[in-house]
Design a protein around this nucleic acid. Structure first.
Lengths: 238, 238
DNA sequence: GTCTATATTCGGATAGAC
DNA sequence: GTCTATCCGAATATAGAC
């Protein structure tokens, strides 16, 4: 199991490998979940077939759209890359936009879990560490999903654009709440909890938005995580 | 004039208003410059006519593409919003992609100037302050341009995508160089100059990428600038 | 359920009038 | 130089065979 129990019964994450073992939103589980949560959008009714096709669709979508953008990627491109026919594509979609909708759904779900896990910790510094680790680790496993949502939010309807923005704002608010709580207790010393919170978030985002920067510099996930946590402690004067 | 002279003959920026007064890449100057630098792409040969049309084209492009994306914005949309006919559009463009190319050109130009201005300062802390101010101020004046390039880099040819990435890497490298120099002199105390540099950059980017976040929180440009500079000093242990 | 073939719309770009 | 009308290719989505 990837989680260890603290004295106070809250859970903790030690490293990426352990986290990854218990992270449920990946591999076949992820696509089964997608199928369950979006049965209204999916014509095919057999879990096995549909989720196998969904897997192909998302992998190809991420590959193609990361280079040229979602809108520029045609369904013909997608058909070629997945090996599915146009009919095959439309067996697990009702329209192109569904792909983006499902990405929004998953990122929203995972982000909520991350925020909850952070808030469940017993003290503020642990909460911040949990927030940082869970966000970094989950966005590493689901890098293409997080990346896609960031750059393709504008492909969504304005209603869903708002949903997408809200994910970001809720995460910042969660971090800010934790920091403010630490300030109130006299653990942290900082002028603007909001500014620290938003800075943490964009550093977290930078990890999945610009992975090439860190690859070029040979910065590993654990190094990045430590850098960030050290920075946070400096900003909070710990 | 917006620049004041220091004792050592380097220039300094005091506030946005002063900076804005002397910033040459705005209003009619900007579009005249665009015309001069892209005569090969522009059929129309009269400066006045062409730059007036370019102004309309860019203003409408930024308005439309910020909501739905550049690729989703059709030239018919653009024609309607600018009030120009299709023929009118093609009098100052040879193809749609030219718009994105010209944005790249301007952002590149301004970024280079910013980096130079930072490096010309006499001491490292002043260099960082100059980098932060010039980047924040110029990206405020040219917010749609910087925003567009960030989100539409993928609409460019792979050759130009590299150019766009390079702007970012060069700015990080400039900041890193300044910090490293300060570390060598014993002025700054920091483990990873690169990490601080990249953090500064993404905080700078966040200002023009997510202006709504700061509007909601009523954070002004000068407040943001001070927050960031204070953060930098904490990270450098000054 | 999945395929091929096709209907239909819409995009970028152009030709030719004025 | 700018407009209108039009071409042509490409995109999404569907219909109907197997």
């Amino acid at each position: 199991m990837g989680l260890t129990l603290n004295n106070d019964n809250t859970t903790n994450i030690n490293n990426f490998e352990e986290y990854s073992e218990q992270f449920e939103y990946q591999n076949q589980h992820l696509y089964n979940l997608l199928f369950e949560r979006n049965q209204d959008l999916i014509k095919s009714k057999k879990v096995g077939v549909a989720s196998a096709n969904l897997k192909k669709v998302f992998e190809s979508t991420f590959k193609l759209s990361s280079k040229i953008g979602f809108h520029e990627m045609s369904l013909r491109d997608l058909s070629k890359d997945t090996g599915l026919s146009m009919g095959g594509l439309y067996s697990c979609l009702t329209k192109k936009e569904d792909i983006a909708l499902m990405v929004l759904d998953i990122v929203e779900l995972v982000s909520e879990k991350n925020n909850q896990a952070a808030l469940e910790q017993s003290d503020e510094l642990q909460s911040l560490e949990m927030a940082i680790r869970s966000y970094l680790y989950s966005s590493t496993i689901l890098q293409p999903w997080f990346f896609f949502l960031y750059f393709e939010t504008r492909s969504l309807s304005s209603e869903n654009q708002i949903k997408s923005k809200k994910i970001e704002l809720t995460t910042i608010a969660t971090l800010e709440k934790i920091i403010q709580s630490g300030v109130d207790k006299g653990i942290f010393d900082v002028n603007s909890p909001y500014f620290v919170a938003t800075t943490i978030l964009i550093v977290l985002q930078d990890w999945y938005l610009k992975p090439w920067k860190n690859k070029e510099k040979n910065i590993s996930l654990e190094q990045y995580s430590k850098h960030l946590f050290r920075m946070v402690k400096k900003l909070l004067r710990i």
